[in-house]
Design a protein around this nucleic acid. Structure first.
Lengths: 237, 237
DNA sequence: AAATGCGATTGACCCAGATCAATTTTGGTC
DNA sequence: GACCAAAATTGATCTGGGTCAATCGCATTT
């Protein structure tokens, strides 16, 4: 979907009371640095379905997700799509070598990001190895997740893929805030399919199968984990 | 395979005439720093099939590949294997967050690495942001490769997987040294299968098919690219 | 409350790639 | 150069998940 209305808030927000203060890149900054940092970023809102940046776009900004969920994906020339990850509040996007993004990102539901212009942000990092170290840390974590996902894509069955996805997603939501055995799934079945390397039909059938076996209950906007042990068994660690 | 004979050379080597001087982490160091750096690493040899480190091992060292090829892989409890990458000279291994490796690595053929103890290396980085930046650069490059590989694993057909693999591997060898349309494949068919998320039979059949179509010739220890355009077409970039 | 439209589900059928099972080729080794 | 073991190839068959094609829900609009 193409961008339509983007809202930019210029003022009125402070890093010190930012929701992702503790988990994002900025976690590595002290109070004084944070005040300077504040002037670098601006909050930007995206409506559901809007594209935040596209693969092969020149990188002009870095983004810190504040609210909402984004899908990160790559397309093949013939339209096949692979979702390489979902971004949640606290995730940092935009790192690259070539000066171009190497995946596209769009909003699933309403999204707020903290946007940093590349130049000023780069200069700010320059003499703050702490921040660089933090960014490195995030990159290494993502790398580890990426490798786990390769195992899933290359070597797991459809049942295992869906079960691991549910557990992994639940875990990520848990890390953020809401402890809950009802797992909210803001993304579409097609998104899940493109994340797991399956078709939408297979994802749907697998959900239904899990429900028939009493492992989950499919509810509005998500699922309820009824029998976590069973789902874990299916995920086959 | 378990470690058997590991040869350690304590002296007699200098970073300044190291084969990977220009491409590895050390590329970010100046002559003076290089002399200090020299004392941190030691060259270690591994014989074919030996394991350099295993997943879940406590990280005690970082490694810089100097010579040879390594397979990097993860295993599922039931033995299914996914190769998450191949390491070539210049590659840097061992970065992680948890203090444990998140994949295993073993030698394909004879391998020489430059091994750094975690502590001293960490301290050396401490006040050298240049080096940290270099490591970050390498991590980001790997992340980009990992995402490309997710697309391959999740959304490409067997033919496309094999064709892209051949082109990608040829490209990596090209970057290193030997410009050549004969592509050396030091890894086994099983390794290729576990890298591409296929079975050994499918890899073998696809090679044969490519050969029948005149796109490649299967030779001792590799293949010869006869019709690169055709292979590229199959890879469907 | 009927109409619309899109996401999700379900069913019927198919096929790419897995599995199972022999060979064949290659590389050592005595 | 005969022998053996491991790797690779090839063939026959099977099947998990894809493809094609209807519905089925709902939420939104009129």
């Amino acid at each position: 979907m193409k961008p339509s209305v983007v809202t930019i808030e210029s003022t009125g927000h402070f890093c010190s009371d930012c929701a992702v203060r503790g988990s994002a890149v900025c976690a590595s900054l002290d109070a004084a640095e944070l005040r300077q940092f504040e002037h670098l970023g601006r909050r930007v809102h995206f409506a559901s379905g809007e594209t935040v940046f596209s693969e092969e776009d020149i990188t002009t900004s870095f983004y810190n997700v504040l609210e909402g969920v984004m899908r990160l994906y790559k397309l093949l020339p013939d339209g096949r799509r692979q979702i390489v990850g979902f971004a949640l509040p606290g995730d940092f996007l935009g790192m690259n070598l070539s000066g171009r993004h190497n995946f596209s990102a769009d909003a699933i539901g309403a999204v707020t990001v903290c946007q940093f212009a590349k130049g000023p942000f780069g200069r700010f990092i320059e003499d703050r190895p702490q921040l660089l170290r933090r960014i490195n840390e995030l990159a290494i974590r993502e790398l580890s997740q990426a490798r786990d996902h390769m195992v899933l894509l290359g070597r797991r069955s459809a049942d295992e893929k869906v079960a691991s996805f549910l557990l992994g997603w639940r875990e990520r939501l848990f890390m953020l805030n809401a402890p809950s055995d009802t797992v909210s799934l803001p993304m579409s079945r097609q998104d899940i399919a493109d994340y797991l390397g399956l078709t939408i039909e297979t994802v749907s059938r697998t959900f239904t199968k899990l429900e028939r076996h009493g492992a989950i209950e499919i509810i509005q906007g998500g699922v309820s984990l009824l029998d976590q042990a069973r789902v874990e068994a299916l995920a086959a660690a």
